[in-house]
Amino acid sequence: MSVPPVVSQDHEALLASPDPQLAANKRLVYDMYRIVLQAGLADRAHEFIAEDYIQHNPNAAQGLKGLVDYVRASRPERPIKDTLDLPLVHLMAEGNYVTTTFVRPEKDAKGETYYSSWFDLYRIENGKIVEHWDPMLKSDPKIDPNDKRI
């Protein structure tokens, strides 16, 4: 039987940092995830994402428009919540980079649930997200990560 990783129960503690710039970078990524990726409000992406955004997910096009199109094609709009519903394990910031780690429940060939992890890395410049990496493969379908809750 697969055991899920322990998830954070205190997102505010994850967002805190004695360095105000690191705290601001973490909040930017967290709020982008909450408003754009979780709530599906693609029209608000410009508040968080730079126009010339570099995307390393092979299933999304480059630039702000590429992210907006991906969000619109992969999830419905939902109410904005104060916290992330996805099972957040950790949020780290160093320099201009922020990394998120989520638990990812999946089904094996027998239909049994097992747990994996999903990592996103964001680069921040001038108060906007300018670059993104994740482990998505070109062969993976577009997904709504909001369906990956434990």
Rank of each mutant, 00 (worst) to 15 (best):
S2M: 14
V3E: 14
V6H: 15
Q9D: 10
Q9Y: 08
D10L: 08
A13P: 00
L14F: 02
L14H: 08
L15A: 02
A16S: 09
P18T: 09
P18K: 12
P20S: 07
P20M: 08
Q21L: 08
L22T: 00
L22E: 05
A23P: 01
R27W: 01
Y30V: 01
D31W: 07
D31C: 08
M32W: 07
Y33I: 12
Y33F: 05
V36M: 13
V36T: 10
L37A: 11
Q38T: 09
A42S: 10
R44T: 06
A45R: 11
H46W: 14
E47W: 08
F48L: 10
E51F: 06
E51K: 06
D52H: 15
Y53D: 02
Y53H: 12
I54S: 10
Q55V: 04
H56L: 04
N57R: 15
N59M: 11
A61W: 11
G63R: 15
L64N: 05
L64E: 02
K65T: 13
K65H: 10
G66L: 02
L67I: 13
L67R: 10
V68T: 15
V68G: 05
V68K: 14
R72V: 08
P76L: 11
E77S: 10
E77P: 14
P79S: 01
K81M: 13
L84R: 01
L86H: 12
L86G: 01
L88R: 08
L88V: 09
M92V: 04
M92Y: 06
N96P: 06
V98N: 07
V98G: 00
T100N: 04
V103N: 12
E106Q: 13
E106I: 09
D108H: 05
D108R: 13
D108T: 04
A109G: 14
A109W: 13
A109V: 11
E112T: 15
T113D: 11
T113G: 07
Y114Q: 11
Y115P: 13
Y115M: 07
S116K: 13
S116C: 15
W118D: 06
F119S: 07
D120Y: 14
Y122F: 15
I124F: 00
I124V: 10
E125S: 00
N126R: 09
G127S: 04
G127K: 06
K128Y: 05
E131G: 03
H132A: 06
W133F: 07
D134N: 09
P135D: 03
L137H: 10
K138M: 07
K138S: 05
K138N: 05
D140L: 03
D140Q: 09
K142L: 09
I143W: 04
D144H: 06
N146P: 05
D147P: 00
R149C: 04
